[in-house]
Design a protein around this nucleic acid. Structure first.
Lengths: 196, 196
DNA sequence: GGGAGTCTACCGACTAGTTGGTCTGTCGTC
DNA sequence: GACGACAGACCAACTAGTCGGTAGACTCCC
């Protein structure tokens, strides 16, 4: 289905978005990186918005798959959340894709084409819903404690993760800084039952 | 000193950056908004990087002045932090400048000119230092409680605020959402002595 | 008082390069 | 011979930035 070139265009676009955002990458960048004609990119993705929508759609799917797989193998809510938070710590440490493209695009939101903006919003909704599910389950099982309801806890966690990414980026890709900011956000939910 | 045109260019550039970032605004935008020639902008700011550096420098100064003034009039640490957090809630509610330009530029950091990147980093350092001072003083006076040291607490607060801005922007400028995410971050520091 | 020179603020017209996007083709494969 | 995958050449619009010039204010000197 998805041809090799098609996938490589998506890959390149994604890595360009990770560290330049929507407005600072061009068809020429992808063309040069892959050694293909610009027209080839237009053949697979008629417009820039189509390309970026496809990137985020794939990203959303990967996120859903990843979180779903983790939920299947890890029943403990605290570990699930730690898995999500730790995933990004590893990304920053490896410096491969050290930023959530949806968070970056969210910052640029007012300047994005409508279709792209919708995808970004959808990612936030999905991610929040997934984490809300984890937290809700954890609270009901007594594995987690929180003074807020599950959804609010999830939003706080996501915000902290995104803010910590920003801080780490400013600090030159400092994974320790990311961890030191996010760790207390996890502890907040697992406190007093940490030694389970 | 600072002529009227000079200031208006800065104002316009700042508001363009707030909702488009560095790469998605142009001299032509400012030129059109103010009804002046593009060459006039170049007269005051030789290059785009110079312009944006000037915007952030002024922004940093305003932040320092604002936080300094608040510290002078409000001795209670908890209120100082609430003032910082509440400032952005009001900005989002009024929809005038509903995003911290330094946070937005931080996301775009890898694609920014070096001089601009430096200014962004400097803002983060200054802001963290200021809040660290507030928290440190609050802890020593017994007005605040924290399981982490003051600097780490400050970084967590900043990250939460930035993450909450992102969430609010995605939600279409939802100030309530911003508040619901940031409020617990403040409570974390003021808990058990809230009724002072 | 009146030039003559100088400075700042500003603008219209321009440039070289880049942007996203199109058109017309040529391959190879089924 | 139709079709998907690709590319070269092209396009209009836009990018940051330059150039030469003008209009006004502020000197300084006679």
């Amino acid at each position: 289905m998805a041809s090799d070139t098609y996938t490589r265009i998506l890959d390149t676009a994604q890595s360009l978005i990770v560290n330049r955002g929507y407005n600072a990458f061009s068809y020429a960048d992808i063309s040069a990186a892959l050694g293909i004609g610009k027209a080839t990119i237009h053949h697979h993705f008629p417009g820039k918005a189509d390309l970026v929508v496809a990137v985020i759609a794939r990203y959303r799917q990967a996120t859903e798959d990843g979180l779903g797989a983790m939920a299947a193998r890890e029943p403990r809510a605290g570990r699930r959340l730690a898995g999500y938070v730790g995933f990004w710590e590893q990304c920053i440490r490896d410096n491969n894709a050290p930023f959530c493209i949806a968070a970056l695009l969210a910052a640029e939101l007012p300047s994005l084409p409508a279709e792209v903006a919708e995808q970004v919003k959808a990612h936030f909704d999905e991610l929040t819903a997934r984490l809300t599910g984890f937290i809700d389950e954890g609270l009901r099982k007594g594995e987690l404690t929180s003074t807020e309801d599950a959804e609010r806890s999830a939003r706080i966690l996501v915000a902290t993760v995104h803010g910590a990414m920003l801080a780490a980026r400013v600090a030159g890709g400092d994974a320790e800084l990311y961890a030191s900011i996010t760790a207390p956000a996890l502890q907040r939910l697992t406190r007093e039952i940490a030694s389970t």
